[in-house]
Design a protein around this nucleic acid. Structure first.
Lengths: 196, 196, 196, 196
DNA sequence: CATGAATGAGGTTTCATTCAT
DNA sequence: TATGAATGAAACCTCATTCAT
């Protein structure tokens, strides 16, 4: 019984992964159920055994991505290091995750028209939760007088934006590998917050 | 005859504007020819008098956006001010333009699958040209020893990303208006490049 | 302009006719848009130019049928004949219309799950209006002491049911033609109401 | 072994019952195997252990209904009462059975396209057999000079139609209960046949 | 016996595109 | 120039059916 359910859940995740990758490439409307299915060597129909409809599938994939990202942040949060190092680490983790998982942040853009009000609320809430980890670190740094920023909300968004954009320009063929890119970005972005 | 052509060109621009706005909201695939047409109180069919097909229409609108952005940069470039001020100004102009025109940078994201190879080359070339203005300013700053960066290409992308992301989080209902937001973003981003 | 609209309306009616006939044969779910379209030598897609969706098309066809039936009853109502004759005539008209138009009363059966609440209300209201003409005649007959019934609502339904069932058993290959069938049915049903 | 078979047959009947009820509500095409199965808390797949396919299942359910109706008529036939009373009783039984069992007479309507030729023949034959009981009673009444009709076949159909229609208009919420409705209908319909 | 999983044919619907007027 | 009408390809989705376990 539990085996069954595990298998079911595993397959669901597989599908979500497939979906994330393809949607990251082609966008929501540009991706067909056929695309997602054939990528897994199953048929369209099977997808509907696991998900009610396309929207639900895509919604779930967003949720999965966000939950994982949040897990990443929690892990960083728990580390016992100086606040500046913690923020830098968070940035590196974010960028690395983004590039490694091709994680479909593209889809996160303007999801207003794709999802239901309720779904949207859940997504926004998780996004906000994720952002809060950065807020926290920024504020901690301010309190410890290591950081100096005039508007922490905006700074958070500047940092997230700068990082998310990486999927637009990073090419694996370039000189730097993912880790180096993550380091460089983190180093430069630290300047935005660090005192002098 | 010339009048004819002028009228034709004017109408074309009108259509491009309509398209840009709607596509910015709903994405390429989420926007129908019907949407674009009805927004201008004309019929679908008429669009085909001005543009060969949807792709062409969208492509042209991208080109228009990019050309305008480049014009903006040229204007900034020509100003006779200190390099740091020039870069700061460029940032303010970029963010302001973005928020004012709702300019469909969303569409610029991963257009790989929408356009033909030739079209893509033209877009990439214009994008690159646009980026070059920032590269130029950054490099000028380095030479003048006002800026200090380790990798100017990455810094350019960090800056562009941080700015472009603004369309994702800025709400007109917030406390700050467009100008203030642009200022705040520019101020913080200057820290990425400025020495000390 | 008016010509255009007339053409549009005419085409719409054509489609409704086609739909009525086919649905009468195969039922709502058994009828495909393809069926309706190919019957008119047009394509599926064209149907959507005239009707929002299948449900709307079918709904409109029901309305059309009911309105016509009501027109029939109004015509009978206006005739200046004895009440018994009037009822008999109404029956003959009903049966004739039913058999001539193959009028899809089959669809009228249990439309609960096909239509929206609002649509259902409209249908029920028209059905009721139609039934009222029979009620009226029955009650007139009672007042004039020509008819004798204990429950006029039930009698109305008995009469309508007996008539509607004709589509289930009448075969054009039989001895009697439509008019004769209508006469025979009407004659026998008159006995249900007539005094002695 | 016999126990096995009994259990098998019992389960089959259960399924048929479920099917009859649901199809009565939603029609053949509107009812899914899933609907029928979940109503019995089993899975779709299991149905195929008992019936070759959907059509077979539905066909069997029709047959079951008809056989039971015929049993009803046989019981009435055997009663030792006057012919007029016998016909009246038959009507009451018919209406009561219809309303009690929600018996899916809707499905009986135009089954032409649902069943195979052979299946159709069997259904038509049973239907006819059922009708014959009414014919018999009508003819007996004529011979005994209690009834007076010009065309007994048509009269049979009038009576059946009037009765079958009851499922369309009878509401359990109304004043009359099933028995009263059956009585009223029977009383009025007797007038169609009774001499003066 | 029963089921979970998968399939694929077929249905509804959307929409870019064409074309006669 | 502009449009009303039509088209057809392709998308989403449903569901009867199969089958290994």
């Amino acid at each position: 019984m539990t085996l069954r359910k595990k298998k079911f859940a595993k397959k669901k995740e597989e599908i979500l992964h497939s979906a994330i990758n393809i949607i990251a490439e082609r966008g929501y409307h540009g991706t067909t159920m056929e695309d997602i299915a054939s990528n897994l060597f199953i048929t369209k129909g099977s997808l509907y055994y696991y998900f009610k409809d396309k929207q639900e599938l895509v919604f779930q994939s967003q949720i999965m991505l966000l939950l994982r990202s949040i897990d990443n942040m929690i892990a960083v949060q728990l580390e016992d290091i100086l606040i500046a190092e913690k923020l830098r680490k968070a940035m590196r983790v974010h960028v690395t995750y983004l590039l490694r998982e091709r994680s479909g942040f593209e889809m996160m853009i303007q999801p207003d028209h794709l999802f239901s009000k309720q779904q949207l609320e859940e997504i926004v809430s998780l996004r906000e939760q994720y952002g809060t980890y950065f807020d926290q670190m920024i504020n901690d740094g301010i309190e410890e007088k290591v950081f100096h920023v005039t508007d922490s909300k905006i700074v958070r968004n500047i940092i997230l934006g700068a990082m998310n954009w990486v999927t637009q320009w990073y090419s694996p063929k370039g000189k730097k590998d993912v880790t180096e890119i993550a380091d460089t970005i983190a180093d430069h972005l630290m300047r935005v917050v660090i005192k002098n």
